[in-house]
Design a binder for these strands. Structure first.
Lengths: 246, 246
DNA sequence: CCAAAATGTCTATTGATATAGACAACTATA
DNA sequence: TATAGTTGTCTATATCAATAGACATTTTGG
């Protein structure tokens, strides 16, 4: 058979082995090799992508480095993990609930917190005067010990004093809000963009260079419609997809 | 000043010039250089990214090739275009309305159409029996003559016979639906993921290699909740962002 | 046990990527 | 009209990326 993958592109600043690694990674994520639990043999992949076997080996080595596959001499290259979490986005979007039973262990880590003055952009989003005091939280969220997203969230400081400690203790925004006197809130709006991972993404989300990051900018409000939180979150595009139910 | 950008990464399969091109492209898109209308001098950029001036020149050459900047000897490197359309996603999501006045000219081109049998996945999404006849449309949507998205849409063939012609004539899904007897419909759900552009994306969306594509999988239904359309659309991540208003 | 099917390792060669330095050519402005 | 600031071009060198081929090593199955 002369069936061939949509060819990879040469000399575009993206090395062939990386393009191939990306393609294999997402093929794994979409369940393409579920029947065998193995990636096709190197020679087969090389033929499919129209490259040398060594180039495929570089790609597989990168995936092995990420912990996605493991090559075993004589047997083949085994798939160790394949995941793509689904995040529903709605008025009642909550990180931990959203993941639901897609992961057993859910963690929220507080990386840093500080108090700062609202910039023009933040003030407009939170409907506060410029310069208003805000609490800023830097968080890292994990599912089954894999980092899924990192987020920067801002809260009006006067209304939610102590929310940093509450988040550190609970690992949940919903629980932290409850602890400082807000039992319920709703998602007002979500903006979604996609960019290449920057250096911080690479380290905190444990990504490989060239990876894609989905960026959401979300505004939450209390039941009366008063903004209570603005958050910029960065998700590994390989690990998640978003679903909007209208 | 020793202010420095988050450093680019070396030897990861993504050439430095491409990483830098991506960063400058999105800096332009986010309005970072609006005051001057120019990109900073090559030497400045080289210092910011911690690379040789020649490497920056490669990045700028790539952006010039894309028509985003134009270098003028003696003056600097001028910004020619910077765009990021905003797409609201809601129950009443419509492509042309959604863009609204963000673009003057809106086009919808019918690239191809065919009739085919529903696969298991399509049948489940459209709530039809496997093998049911579907009309498939391949479309390309443009705003101000720039390609914004390409989409594959499926419709129940018996109910919407002639929708391909109606779309070809009107360039609008909403108008095409109206022409075949469906005056109104609503968006039921939208899934969003992000991947690297494949070969078809590169040519049809006029992207450069390594670019990011936002993929949406959307289900539309008539006012009674009966699915009428399932569509997979691919957007240039540099050109658009999505907004979900809850 | 043997052969087929895999992955592992090595050498060699070519072209792309990145750095370095020097200087030319052009533009704006003091 | 100098001069500073900026892009354009050239040469040279080192490293990475990709190809090519050969053969070793390990596993699986007949």
């Amino acid at each position: 058979m002369d069936m061939q993958e949509a060819a990879v592109r040469r000399q575009n600043g993206v090395a062939l082995w990386r393009q191939i690694a990306d393609r294999i990674r997402s093929a794994i994520a979409s369940g393409e090799y579920d029947e065998t639990g193995k990636v096709p043999p190197e020679i087969t992949l090389a033929a499919q992508f129209g490259v040398n076997r060594h180039t495929v080996r570089s790609a597989l080595a990168a995936l092995a480095q990420e912990g996605i596959v493991q090559a075993v001499q004589g047997r083949g290259t085994l798939i160790l993990r394949k995941e793509r979490l689904n995040f529903p986005i709605s008025r009642r979007t909550r990180f931990n609930q959203g993941i639901g039973d897609q992961a057993r262990e859910k963690e929220g880590l507080l990386l840093a917190s500080s108090e700062e003055a609202a910039t023009a952009d933040l003030a407009a989003r939170l409907q506060l005067p410029v310069g208003a005091r805000l609490i800023r939280l830097e968080t890292l969220r994990k599912a089954d010990r894999r980092p899924v997203s990192r987020a920067t969230a801002w809260f009006p400081a006067d209304r939610f004093a102590g929310i940093a400690d509450a988040y550190r203790d609970s690992g949940s925004i919903t629980a932290a809000f409850a602890a400082v006197g807000l039992p319920d809130y709703v998602r007002v709006s979500t903006e979604i963009t996609a960019i290449h991972a920057d250096n911080d993404d690479l380290s905190s989300l444990e990504l490989s260079p060239g990876a894609i990051v989905l960026v959401t900018r979300a505004l939450n409000a209390d039941p009366d419609g008063v903004p209570v939180q603005y958050a910029v979150s960065r998700f590994s595009a390989d690990a998640v997809q978003f679903t909007i139910e209208n």
